[in-house]
Every structure is written in structure tokens, then in C-alpha cells.
């Protein structure tokens, strides 16, 4: 915080930071380590002001008593950084490698079911919807299930509205004019894409509700926030929802850990840089992929911008 600025006089106390970190961990399994005090401050200060508290420490006292306020705080503390066609290569792999194989494998049902788990404000789900709109043959249908632990984010997916700054992040101009309509200062996604996307508030770190079997699951840029045991149990639960010949796609810094026994990996996309994970029991013949797993650093632990 800038001295002499309009923000609270000092940073959050150590005990209160601990309380918030525990809360976040309990509710979302996200780890919030020492050194992230500034982030917690910046995220909670607006809520503190709204609640009429002079600073974040008073607000944390309120959190100890008020469950409704705790839910709001957790919502505000999730990191929702995302963009359209994020990292690009995975989406190329989806069109070039994943889709042709699924089109061959699903000729009977002519239906694809995809899950965008930890979807944030929905850019991932709608990016896929655009690709499916462009590449699905006539007579096929697709459903993209978009879920996130944050009710605010899920509501944003439902609304399908994005600010100018969000639109600039990775959206090709040709698709902007094809799929979006200007509404005030925002852009709204067209109904033809919205009907493909369903939404649900869902905590991946807890037992999952009943779900359909998915052909593709995108679990991107969320495992980085969890500890090893949580990652492992989430990967297990997610695997149970994937079709035998289905695909899992992770963020570019994430891996299925050392779980060679349950997953196989294939390289795909431009220059083979994208990793497709497939359930081990799958029918697909797969090449072994050299294990390059290392503790994933998070390049995304920055303040939410433009949200």
C-alpha cells in the first residue's frame, strides 16, 4: 500500500492473514502463502469499505462472526485470471487432433460433451463454443458444461458479457464481430453460443455432484493453486468423469503428477508442444511421453485486472 494513500494505514495482521488463508483453504483448497498479504489486502479492502469497516483487520473480525460475509470474501479472493484462446496451442490441438478423433468415435450419437472445470468468467467455455460452431459438421450437437467454485464467476458466464479490456485479451477481431454484439460499454456473446453452454457452481476439492460422462475435460490453470494431495484427489475424481477414449487438457505448466499408472500422455498441437492426457484404461494407443514434471510455479498470481 502506498503511504499517505487512501488505503488502510497498515497491512493485515499476521493472525488475521492466517485466518483468511485457512478460510480460503477450507472452502476452495487454494493455498495462500505468506507474502500474499498485499493481495489479500487489495481484494478485501473494497469489501471492508462496503461493510462499513475502517480497515481489513476490522473486516476479518466481522468474517469470524458472519458466514454470509465469509462466502463473499472467499469469492473475492479467488484468482480469476483468464483470456480467450488462452495459450493458443491447446485450442489448435483441440481442432487438429482432438476433434477429428471424437468425430470419428461419436458417429453414432453425433454428440459431444465437454467440461470446462474452473472456468472463471467463461472465456475458455465460449472459446470452445466458437471452435465447435465453426468445425462441427451439420447434424451434430455439443454441450459445454462450465463450472467454478465462485458464484460470481458462474454468474458472469451465464451473463456472457465482457468488458472492452477483456475482449482485447486474445479474441481475434473476426470472431469478435461474428459472435459478439455491443451492449453499452460491454460485448455480449450471441445466443447461438450461449445455448451450447451450461453452468454450475462446483467445488473441485469436494466430492463432485452427479455429472455426465465427458469427451473432453479442460482443467486448466487451477491445479497450480493446490497442494499435492489435493491435486491428486481432484485428478482422480475428474478421471472418473472422462469417457474411456476421452481427453484431459491441463494448463501449460501443469501435469498429471507422477501418476503414470492412471494416465497416459500424448503430444499434440503445433510442434507437439501440447500434452493430451488420457485415462490409462482408454482404448487409444499412445506413445509414452517423457516426464518433465517439476513443481509448477504460478505465473498468474497477480491481481485480477479488468475484472
Amino acid at each position: 500500500m502506498t503511504p499517505g494513500g487512501t488505503d488502510g494505514p497498515d497491512v493485515i495482521s499476521e493472525t488475521n492473514f492466517g485466518f483468511v488463508a485457512d478460510l480460503l483453504r477450507r472452502e476452495t483448497a487454494m493455498l495462500c502463502e505468506r507474502g500474499k498479504e498485499y493481495l489479500v489486502e487489495a481484494r478485501l479492502l473494497p469489501l471492508a469499505r462496503q461493510a462499513g469497516d475502517p480497515d481489513v483487520d476490522h473486516y476479518v473480525d466481522r468474517l469470524r462472526r458472519d458466514a454470509g460475509e465469509r462466502a463473499r470474501a472467499v469469492d473475492a479472493l479467488t484468482i480469476n485470471e483468464t483470456s480467450w484462446f488462452r495459450d493458443l496451442a491447446p485450442y489448435q490441438a483441440f481442432v487438429d487432433d482432438v476433434l477429428p478423433r471424437l468425430l470419428a468415435a461419436r458417429v453414432d450419437t453425433r454428440r459431444l460433451t465437454i467440461w470446462s472445470a474452473a472456468c472463471s468468467s467463461g472465456q475458455e467455455a465460449y472459446s470452445l463454443a466458437m471452435l465447435l460452431d465453426e468445425h462441427l459438421p451439420a447434424g451434430w450437437t455439443a454441450r459445454i458444461h462450465a463450472t467454478d467454485v465462485s458464484p460470481t464467476m458462474v454468474e458472469r458466464v451465464r451473463a456472457g458479457r465482457y468488458s472492452q479490456v477483456e475482449m482485447n485479451r486474445g479474441m481475434p477481431a473476426t470472431r469478435l464481430v461474428k459472435y459478439f454484439q455491443r451492449v453499452g460499454s460491454e460485448w455480449e456473446v450471441q445466443p447461438q453460443l450461449r445455448t451450447m453452454v451450461t453452468t454450475q457452481v462446483m467445488n473441485l476439492a469436494a466430492p463432485l455432484p452427479p455429472l455426465p460422462t465427458f469427451d473432453v475435460v479442460l482443467l486448466r490453470n487451477v491445479l497450480i493453486y493446490f497442494d499435492h494431495a489435493t491435486k491428486q484427489s481432484i485428478l482422480d475424481r475428474v478421471q472418473a468423469t472422462i469417457a474411456e477414449d476421452g481427453f484431459l487438457m491441463l494448463g501449460s505448466t501443469e501435469t498429471t503428477l507422477d501418476l503414470e499408472t492412471t494416465w497416459t500422455r500424448e503430444s499434440a498441437g503445433p510442434a507437439g508442444r501440447v500434452v493430451l492426457h488420457r485415462p490409462r484404461h482408454g482404448r487409444a494407443v499412445s506413445r509414452p511421453f517423457p516426464d518433465s514434471s517439476s513443481p509448477a510455479a504460478s505465473p498468474h498470481l497477480t491481481l485480477r485486472t479488468g475484472a
Binding site: 483470456s83 493458443l88 496451442a89 479490456v165 482485447n168 486474445g170 505448466t253 509448477a296
Partner: peptide
């Protein structure tokens, strides 16, 4: 469209094949 962030410009240049982001190993 202005305003934009630096990331937005770089991401657009990636779309155009004029920039390559380093993928973490």
C-alpha cells in the same frame, strides 16, 4: 480497442504469428 494492456497486444501478435510466448519447461 483502446484501452488495452500490454498482454493484449502481445496475445494479438501471437494470434498473427508475430510473437511466440515462451512456454515454461
Amino acid at each position: 480497442i483502446k484501452p488495452f494492456t500490454a498482454d493484449a497486444i502481445v496475445e494479438k501478435l501471437e494470434l498473427l504469428g508475430l510473437a511466440v510466448r515462451e512456454v515454461p519447461a
